[in-house]
Design a protein around this nucleic acid. Structure first.
Lengths: 125, 125
DNA sequence: TTGACATATTCCGTAATGGGAATATATTCA
DNA sequence: TGAATATATTCCCATTACGGAATATGTCAA
């Protein structure tokens, strides 16, 4: 079972570099028609349309018809779950220094209580 | 050219749900041996080892031999690029209300000047 | 209607994923 | 040395992703 079905999985959706490019682009420019994206990124139109399709399914972007154009817009809020997931780790790199110290300590402790009662020491790090 | 090579691509690495589980687990518990992860997540050992292998390659986790165990530890900092990427969108959902208003305005404007190239006529919504 | 654009969809091929089962590789212990 | 334990690796397979080319669908203009 390869990967998670892209549909409805934001994590997988943003795993694609080109899809991220599109997202970034849509974030800068307010809204863009497919043609504009094609021109800007220099990708074949079908490729862009397909990636937009994925982003659409996941809800990361939404479309509105404007004449013969399809104008895409980014739904920033859809990215929030990913952000929130990552936010949980934020503290760890914020208190970088503390962390290094703590880790050293923990490592020392771990070295002495590896097995249940074995009191020998192993190579550290 | 399917997908991005997992190696060295953090985005792809965290796209896998089980891999995320492992990351979460390693974030809670300080460091864990493979066996502990296997028990906790209830996954087959080879599966866990393989996922750990991926995370290892990307640098999200690091190992240290401790007797016959392999103790894994999370390198939180590796997740930071993803976090930073998402952070750029943070403002948009922070000022949710403003955004809604702005969007409405923009939509009105957009109705008279399409994005791309042809700026001749306007769409009929 | 026909024709020019703009975009989506389909079909195809290749490559790579992820799980399962079996096996290989340590490492510790008796 | 040889079991026993812990983990990694290999092989195989079904599934899927992505890109490319061609084509379908939709929309506007004359």
């Amino acid at each position: 079972m390869p990967r998670t079905p892209i549909t409805s999985d934001v994590f997988t959706a943003i795993a694609e570099p080109r899809r991220r490019q599109i997202i970034e682009l849509l974030s800068r420019k307010r809204s863009l028609a497919v043609g504009a994206i094609v021109l800007t990124l220099g990708l074949p139109q079908p490729v862009v349309s397909k990636h937009l399709g994925v982003l659409r399914e996941v809800g990361i972007v939404s479309v509105s018809k404007q004449g013969q154009h399809r104008v895409y817009e980014l739904n920033h809020d859809r990215l929030r779950p990913v952000y929130d997931w990552l936010k949980a780790f934020e503290q760890h790199w914020t208190h970088q220094l503390d962390r290094i110290r703590e880790r050293a300590e923990r490592r020392a402790v771990a070295a002495s209580k590896i097995s249940s009662s074995s009191t020998r020491k192993k190579g550290s790090t």
